[in-house]
């Protein structure tokens, strides 16, 4: 199935801004995180289309999956 993956802010570095990617049926959000080597401890919002998603959720054909890094705030 084809899934559009959108990366934001620091997650773009060394990867891409947006990519159409082929994944096997039943691929989960967590599988894509591993595929792209996104750092788990720096993950902020994850959306499938316009809905917030957990790592265990499976993807469907045509989904758009968006990853935002965690922005904690000011530096001291």
């Amino acid at each position: 199935m084809t899934v559009t993956v959108k990366l934001f802010a620091t997650f773009r570095k060394g990867r891409f801004d947006e990519s159409q990617r082929e994944y096997a049926e039943l691929t989960t959000v967590g599988d894509v995180i591993k595929d792209l080597a996104l750092p788990n401890h720096k993950l902020g919002a994850i959306l499938i289309n316009t809905f917030h998603a957990g790592k265990g959720l499976p993807l469907s054909e045509g989904d758009t999956l968006s990853f935002f890094p965690l922005v904690g705030g000011e530096c001291r």
Binding site: A9, T10, H41, G44, A45, V71, G72
Partner: peptide, 30 residues
């Protein structure tokens, strides 16, 4: 953080901070 930022407004009864940070420990972001 660096080149990036975000802004949101939470009214009483909303829970955006929990949605944004509830799954994280208290370690710094990027």
């Amino acid at each position: 953080a660096g080149w990036y930022g975000h802004v949101s407004t939470q009214f009483p009864g909303d829970n955006i901070i929990e949605k944004l940070y509830g799954h994280t420990d208290d370690s710094p972001g990027v």
